[in-house]
Computed example of a mutant assay.
Amino acid sequence: MDELISIAVGLYECLSRDPRVSSPGSIRSYVYALADYLVRAQMGADDDLLLRVLAQNLRGSVRVREGELKDILRNALICLEGGPHEVVRIPTAVHSLDVDTDASPNLAIIINKYIDKYSSPKDKYIIIRKLFGEKKLEELHSNTVKIERRLEEAEELKISVSSLRRYRPGHSYSDVDILLTSKNFMRKSMLGKPISNLDIILREYKKKIIKNIIICLDVSGSMKEYVRGVTKLQLALGAIAHYLDFLRRENADVALILFNAQADVLWAPYSAAKYAEYMKAILPYVFPTGGTNLASAFRLLIEEDLGGEIVLISDGRTANAEAAVEYVKRIKGRIHVFAAEDSAVLKRIASAKGGVYSLLA
């Protein structure tokens, strides 16, 4: 925020030197106006829209003649650059904010420049909506894997037998109690009676109580690619939206980390029961861009001390694959992988942390 204030002061001084400005207004109004300007610039808004947005945000503060503010701001931005050339999309001073434009910052990195990364999903949604307008989550796709169902089916999540019951058509044979079932078969054989489904005994397990879920979502450029008529990212967002509904019923805490070449927290662990609607409302704003460095996501988990049941959604096309595998050893909790395409690297990661590996679609 200190860097943004210094830019605001620079813009204020440039406007103060323009004879057409009768009053440059307050520094505070410049801070919020520039925050809006920078985020929209990162999202690809054209120069004319950027100037109009900046003018709208400063109209109540800067006193000029009607219709002159946009041109005055154009000159002020050139003044910030220090030379008579075209309006810059992001002023040079803004680069002091450490926004790596070559690395194509994702939504989490952009938003966390203007709000604490641990702010609630509600607070983050309010700011995102103010900056980018209203968006709705696209229709969920029926061919998206149900994350909760796949995890529930996994043997690793069964921790103890709670009861026994007889088999009914449609239930999995993986839970058959071999000892009791074989006794029933032997008894029926000795009595000369036919064996039926009622002789098959299944174990019912207590499921692991879900408390803390960390979702790591790949938002690199390769997630733009299409799979069965939709993009990989659309499949991922649909799966996450379904999963949030499940986690709300389970009263679990859930966080979402976005990563491409860099990683950051889109929202920290918060109660899905309380914030699921805001979490789902944020999803449509997530966009794919840039390269992939899976190691950056794992490094962030370690640095922020985030652990629990980790759900990784990616296509596995990453730089520094071996570095990512090394970071896995230091992560707290299991890593369950939902792959947008089959990936040997992602299989290694799931196996190393005792997690599930499943294709996303």
Rank of each mutant, 00 (worst) to 15 (best):
M1T: 07
E3M: 12
E3D: 12
I7D: 03
L15W: 03
R17I: 04
P19S: 05
S22Y: 03
S29D: 11
S29K: 11
L38P: 00
G44N: 12
N57C: 05
L58Q: 09
E66L: 04
N75P: 00
A76D: 01
C79F: 06
E81A: 15
I90G: 06
V94R: 00
L97E: 01
S104W: 00
I109C: 06
I110M: 14
I111E: 13
N112K: 08
Y114C: 04
K117A: 11
S119H: 10
S119W: 04
S120N: 03
R129S: 13
F132N: 03
G133W: 07
K136R: 12
E139G: 04
E139F: 04
K146T: 01
K158L: 11
R166T: 15
P169R: 12
I178C: 02
L179Y: 12
S182F: 08
L191T: 03
P194Y: 08
P194T: 09
I195C: 07
S196V: 09
N197I: 12
L202F: 02
Y205N: 06
K207T: 11
I209V: 14
I213P: 04
L217H: 02
V219K: 04
S220T: 09
K224R: 13
E225T: 08
E225W: 01
R228M: 11
G229W: 07
V230Y: 08
L233V: 03
A236C: 04
G238W: 00
A239W: 00
D245L: 09
L247S: 03
N251R: 11
L258V: 07
A261K: 03
W267K: 00
A268R: 02
S271L: 09
A273M: 02
G290W: 01
G291M: 13
T292H: 10
S296V: 08
S296Q: 10
A297E: 06
R299Q: 08
R299Y: 14
L300W: 02
I302C: 07
E303M: 12
D305W: 02
G308T: 06
V325T: 02
K332D: 13
E341R: 13
D342L: 08
S343R: 09
K347T: 02
A352T: 13
G355M: 05
